[in-house]
Write a protein that binds this DNA or RNA. Structure first.
Lengths: 234, 234
DNA sequence: AAAAAACCTGACCAGATGGTCAGTTTCAGC
DNA sequence: GCTGAAACTGACCATCTGGTCAGGTTTTTT
């Protein structure tokens, strides 16, 4: 991954001191939280250090600059993002595969909302740090998986859809529960999303995605309007 | 609108000097652009002034503080956001009404991407300035329109869907073309989205939304898998 | 045309923030 | 337990940025 080339840390296998490993974790976690809340410019090294429970100078001892820290946080997030499309293969059952993917994305939104928000913030502001990743790794991943979906459609196993745009829609629909959490909560009249809320949201997104492909969704019955009302006002 | 109460400007009807009206427009436009690119903290009054083509002191003469300027920009955007759900009424045709709404949202993403980005940024970072708006005006608007959609479902005119979450999905799917524009472009391998790209995106989102409600979409034919596997590829 | 009001701006300032550094403490290997 | 390396940190600094202000110019009103 080209991004953490500059950082020079966070390799997992790199035996760069034992203490370092432990401390870095806390700092990255704190940084993710603060970057998520305040954005790159809005976050201050002092606050991140404070949240991590270390002096500011120590934070700078681990990460040479705010920029380096931010890149390290992003690198962590990108690793999370990539390992998710595996369920989508040509020989898999479309409904099962798509469901698995959507569920994985929703789980990520529920469990790592800060990661999602940092990523969202980075992209909204032009993706200056991860443009390369988007243009190479992400793009080729999407192209491969989109080809699979196209094949499903060609085989008549799903309705024809624009596969690439379907990914955009799935990302948007799932990540909205992390990124736009405050809006969702406000409209629902809650202060935070409970696990049942997340289940409900997941069921809804599954319905949308499956129906978009002409697949029956488990929650409700048919994929078409089943109870044709006697009063067909046409 | 409670938000611009603090600002004391931007009323439209307020005859607060003719020169003021004209200048304010340029400054708000410049501010929207810079806030969209850099976020609240990342934007500087100096840069906004520069983009607007006025000295920094003049900008501060018009807007007492960065905060006030930001609130004014947000107030402008919220006005845009509200006036869009009108097509969704109980007696309207579901497919027509939903299509109109989605089209309006997509048009907004294409024409005012910066507005969308400022709004997105505000929400990602906790919606501290517009929480009140979300909890009152937006919430009640959604509740009313969701009731309409529920009624459609009860009448068997569409498949049952979680109407409130359907709004979240529509917002997410449409705004992603403004907010996450850089990601979309990177994955598509383009440097910017052309009008045809936007049409394609609109057609896709329409397909997703209509099929989610069990409605036939004009672009493709049926709402279910019509051509059985052994069929000719149309 | 004079007075008042509104508009405009260069120069300046106080506080915040990213980053440096010299000196101290802790750890690992011998 | 000795030694060098790694880890750590308080104090400090240069810069950037939001905001002020005194004084000037233009527009409006009388």
């Amino acid at each position: 991954m080209s991004i953490q080339a500059d950082t020079g840390v966070d390799d997992g296998a790199r035996l760069k001191g034992r203490i370092r490993q432990r401390q870095e974790g806390a700092m990255l976690k704190a940084a993710e939280k603060v970057f998520a809340r305040a954005g790159f410019q809005g976050a201050t090294m002092a606050e991140i250090a404070d949240v991590a429970g270390v002096p500011k100078a120590t934070l700078l001892y681990y990460f040479a600059s705010k920029e380096a820290l931010y890149r390290a946080v992003l690198a962590n997030i990108l690793a999370l993002w990539l390992a998710e499309t595996e369920s989508i293969t040509a020989d898999a059952d479309p409904a099962t595969a798509l469901s698995a993917y959507v569920r994985a994305k929703m789980r990520l939104s529920a469990r790592r909302p800060d990661a999602s928000r940092v990523f969202a913030n980075e992209i909204v502001h032009g993706a200056t740090h991860i443009g390369e990743y988007l243009r190479t790794e992400l793009r080729s991943t999407v192209e491969k998986r989109a080809a699979v979906i196209d094949q499903w459609a060609a085989e008549g196993r799903i309705l024809p859809v624009d596969a690439t745009h379907l990914f955009f829609t799935i990302w948007a629909a799932t990540q909205t529960y992390a990124d736009f959490d405050s809006q969702v909560c406000a409209v629902l009249g809650k202060t935070r999303l409970s696990p049942p809320d997340h289940e409900r949201a997941t069921a809804h997104v599954l319905t949308v995605v499956l129906r978009s492909c002409g697949l029956p969704c488990p929650a409700h019955g048919a994929a078409t309007i089943s109870p044709p009302p006697a009063n067909t006002t046409h």
